Computed example of a mutant assay.
Amino acid sequence: MTTLARRTPVPATPPPPPRTAEAEIRRHELAAFLRHRREHIAPEQVGLPRGHRRRTPGLRREEVAQLSAVGVTWYTWLEQARDIQVSGQVLDALARTLLLDPSERAHLFQLAGAPDPSPATVCPSVTPALRALLEQVEPFPAALQNSRYDILAYNSAYSLLLCDLDAVPPGDRNCLLLSYTHEEWRSSIVHLEEATRTMAARFRAAMAGHLAEPAWKTLLKRLRTESPAFCEDWDRHEVVAHRTKRKEIINRHVGRLVVDHTDLWLSPGLGPRMVTYVPADEETRARLEKLHAIALERRT
């Protein structure tokens, strides 16, 4: 009697993920954006002669491809909204060829769903109106921050809240970095360990959407290099959301402050925000008024 061996069923190859309607819309928006920008750049703006037989408004596709060092067919597919992969380096070259300003460049990378390898150093969210608003909330300390905890702008009261922020190099004005590495900033925070652990957890939650972005990776590497305490908190893999919280600060100019920390978001997502510190009692209010006066005197 012959025994037939049982065949192990071979699992079927999973089908490719379906093309979402959102991805298709993004491709068509990207194609239209590229065509529009290409058609509105004169050849002279990129060092090309106009010639007498030019019928295409602006640049030709092959000219954009040549200036960006990409294939003509590939670029044509991009303008036809084909489902192709686009790297950050190629998008960077296209942005330079098409003379995109910072807002247009950010829009290009957002449509392509790719991280920007060279993000703009100037945050477009810091408008003159927002700077004026920072001044209007004084004597309450307030600052504009992004989701990476970079301090983008701040008012006079905030400049002396936790340290002499004007004396900190612009590249080091990051709340997370200062909370782990700057001694005066750290000594001003009551319940420091709880505060830093919470910030690390918030940073981890925010970084989930920016894992490939150079600026985020650079900050993380610096924190891990310069602060063993951050490494310990980071390795907990904790994640928390932003929320209003009462804080205690020991200010070297006016003493103990009890404030309510509030984040006022400037966009639908967890991006740039205005951070405000409102006094929780009358004594703190009076001390913040005194701190504001000291800051104004120092800046004059």
Rank of each mutant, 00 (worst) to 15 (best):
S179W: 07
V86I: 15
P141A: 12
K247S: 06
E283H: 12
E44V: 04
R7M: 09
R186P: 11
P228Y: 09
P272N: 07
V278M: 11
Y149L: 08
V258N: 09
D164V: 10
S87R: 13
K245L: 12
R96W: 07
A229C: 02
G209S: 14
R61K: 10
R27W: 12
V46W: 10
E193V: 01
A69V: 03
T76F: 02
A142I: 04
Y180P: 03
E226M: 00
E138S: 03
G271E: 15
E248R: 12
Q145N: 14
E135N: 09
L67I: 14
W77V: 04
R37M: 07
Q66M: 11
A206G: 01
R55H: 09
R7Q: 11
L223T: 02
D166F: 01
M274Q: 00
W77T: 05
P11N: 09
T13A: 01
L133D: 10
Q45G: 03
P124N: 06
G271R: 12
T20M: 11
P128S: 03
A65M: 09
L270M: 01
N146K: 01
P214I: 07
Q45H: 04
L296A: 11
D172Y: 07
H40K: 06
W234L: 08
E183K: 08
P279S: 08
L165V: 06
V259C: 10
E289I: 01
A112G: 03
W74V: 05
H242W: 13
L134M: 14
L178F: 04
L176I: 03
W185H: 13
L223W: 03
R37W: 06
G269T: 13
R252W: 09
L291E: 03
R148Q: 15
A81P: 04
I84N: 01
W234C: 09
E297F: 07
G47I: 15
V137L: 11
R60N: 14
E193D: 14
V240W: 02
T8D: 09
